[in-house]
Nucleic acid binder design. Structure first.
Length: 202
DNA sequence: TAGTAACA
DNA sequence: AGAC
């Protein structure tokens, strides 16, 4: 793992923390997660489908529907979420800086046209616990703002193998993904991007 | 509005 | 960036 650490608007960035073999191993593990807990398109509380597909691993999964955003013990189908893969836990241990283990491993799949609007991660109970994010596959334009939606934003490209940590001032910063750069990675045979986010929820 | 479209 |  490359130890280089950068900072972008308060977000810690570890470019290329995962080398190609590590990325491939993680994708294989995530494929097993998606077999146990199939990806689904969440719906916002106003009935609009999000463009990303998602599933989770761990004690809790993140769920969105007309009842709002929350963490649930089970996949919408009723099955328990599979365990968080060891490869993913190793990244948390390397960069989170906390002793607690993550309780939720949210896996988002971005097709070439998928995006994620500016939002805050505020469905957790302890904001002293960081959010760790792993990028796999095509490059993605990552936008980071401040604590209010109207705060100015700035963008940077995230590449396959990069890891971000949202902690401290940036823990509740607005952030999102504007677009992908299709064809920039050969990691995923069908293209697109996987993003893995790790959180302590309770 | 974890979304979108129109418009500047 | 703001409005819906």
């Amino acid at each position: 793992m490359t130890p280089e650490k950068l900072e972008f608007r308060g977000v810690a960035l570890y470019p290329g923390l995962l080398d190609r073999p590590a990325q491939e191993a993680m994708v294989a593990a995530l494929r097993r997660v998606a077999e146990a807990a199939p990806m689904f398109h969440p719906e916002s509380r106003f009935g609009k489908r999000m463009s990303v597909k998602m599933t989770s691993a761990g004690a809790f999964g993140w769920v969105s529907d007309r009842r709002g955003y929350r963490y649930e013990r089970r996949h919408p189908s009723g099955v328990a979420w599979p365990p968080i893969p060891a490869e993913v836990l190793a990244v948390w241990q390397a960069v989170s800086g906390v002793e607690r283990a993550p309780e939720c491993c949210l896996v988002n799949y971005y097709s070439e046209t998928a995006r994620m609007g500016l939002h805050q991660d505020i469905d957790e109970s302890d904001f002293a616990m960081p959010v760790v994010s792993i990028s796999l596959g095509d490059d993605a334009l990552f936008r980071v703002g401040g604590l209010e939606r109207s705060d100015p934003t700035a963008s940077t490209w995230l590449r396959s193998g990069d890891v971000c940590v949202l902690a401290g001032e940036a823990r509740r910063a607005f952030h999102g993904i504007d677009r992908l750069k299709p064809g920039t990675s050969t990691l995923l045979p069908q293209g697109g991007r996987l993003n893995v986010t790790l959180r302590v929820v309770t």
